[in-house]
Design a protein around this nucleic acid. Sequence first.
DNA 1: GTTCAAATGAAACATTGTTTCATTTGCTTT
DNA 2: AAAGCAAATGAAACAATGTTTCATTTGAAC
Lengths: 132, 132
Amino acid sequence: MNAIDRLKNKGIKKTAHRLMFINILQKSAVALTEEDIKQDMGELYDRITFYRTIQTLLSAGIIHRIVIDNKNVKYALSEIAFRNHQHMHFFCKICHTVACIGEVPSYDYGLPTGYKGEEYEVLIKGICPNCG
Amino acid sequence: MNAIDRLKNKGIKKTAHRLMFINILQKSAVALTEEDIKQDMGELYDRITFYRTIQTLLSAGIIHRIVIDNKNVKYALSEIAFRNHQHMHFFCKICHTVACIGEVPSYDYGLPTGYKGEEYEVLIKGICPNCG
DNA sequence: GTTCAAATGAAACATTGTTTCATTTGCTTT
DNA sequence: AAAGCAAATGAAACAATGTTTCATTTGAAC
């Protein structure tokens, strides 16, 4: 789905800033940091608009925020959302790339009685093929 | 192990601020936010010292930072570290409590060829017994 | 094209992260 | 116990990030 349709689907206005934001994520195979996206935007980047664009796209469900730890926060389009949606994710300790590596195996995780599990996230940290 | 021994073990000075920080975590069954700890500290709290205490205790390995998402960051003593060390963790969507719920099952997670997994983290989000 | 609600971007303010440095504290040696 | 020294503290100040306000501009519906 293209950027225009993504916005139209959610009934929010298609502005230059939002379209560029989505297009940058669309072109990337991996999740991107704010800095990555900012760089790609060049002079269209504006700090306040950027801040609000993230909020808008997040609450519209068009993008997802992926928090590995307090120093590694990334964004991805919801289709290829790395955390949530029962996907497993791999974080490379060297290049800090986040990759989706398939579905969370659905088997018994042994949740104690009383707990109601709704989302299962598996994050594997290690060395990716490029760095290994 | 008590707070004094924890510091002595790592060869760092036992100061009032550090001892109080560790004791607060020690008394808690769940991981705590900065705000939680700050509240417990009362007037001994100091913003800059607190910031540095966290850095010191983290790099000494006495405490661990647990990042659920960008709005939920918690701290726990390393023994009961919730993420890392192959523990599974449960995050309650209602009360935002983080609880350790046992070991990560060691079975084949199906890591694609080329990837070298070193740490496996499982985070289950849902409703805890208190809120369910 | 006109209209109106929504988005923008400038300014300003709030919060959090971090460094600098003079003072104090904890720990070692005597 | 006292002295000496390196480390920790806390005040000040600065940097980076998060957020609101408001006048202006833009997108989309008519």
